[in-house]
């Protein structure tokens, strides 16, 4: 689909959607949202990008192979769980730190990195499926 209008607005929409997906991911712990939803929004963004510019462009844009992203997410999620072992508490126990960055107290936790892992797995896995199916459609 090489529509001029789509190709013009696509970068803007995609950029906003990816930003929004990260916002949904990070606010997930306190408001509706989270890794699953955020990941799916990012996938939708990448799909639109793919429809506008073709699969190859998307692959170049995300630099890594989508399954590598998913694998990294799975690794990150597992490590977030394993981190608690270092502190002699059971696997997957949530750990929190509150560093002060730029005068603002920022809550960081292993739960958050776990959710980021979930986000990456969903982005990677579903994008991989969508891209490989679209790719087949082109040839």
């Amino acid at each position: 689909m090489r529509s001029l209008i789509l190709r013009t607005v696509a970068p803007l929409i995609v950029g906003l959607m990816v930003l929004f997906s990260i916002f949904v991911l990070l606010r997930g712990h306190n408001e509706p949202g989270g890794g699953f939803i955020g990941g799916l929004i990012a996938v939708a963004a990448l799909s639109i990008y793919g429809i506008a510019f073709g699969v190859e462009t998307v692959r170049r844009a995300i630099v890594f192979h989508p399954l590598s992203i998913a694998g990294a997410g799975l690794l990150l999620a597992t490590l977030s769980g394993l981190l608690s072992m270092v502190f002699h508490v059971p696997f997957m126990t949530g750990l929190w730190v509150y560093p002060v960055i730029l005068g603002e107290e920022v809550p960081l936790s292993s739960v958050m990195t776990f959710d980021i892992g979930v986000y990456l797995v969903v982005v990677g896995a579903v994008t991989s499926v969508a891209l490989s199916l679209e790719e087949r459609g082109e040839d």
């Binding site: 712990h29 989270g34 936790s109």
Partner: peptide, 23 residues
């Protein structure tokens, strides 16, 4: 668990190991 969204807390914290299996 320091989270206000109970559903998300269940997914990533209380039942985190399930979620790990699911992803």
């Amino acid at each position: 668990a320091h989270g206000a969204n109970v559903v998300n807390v269940i997914i990533v914290d209380f039942r985190g190991t399930d979620t790990l299996g699911e992803i």
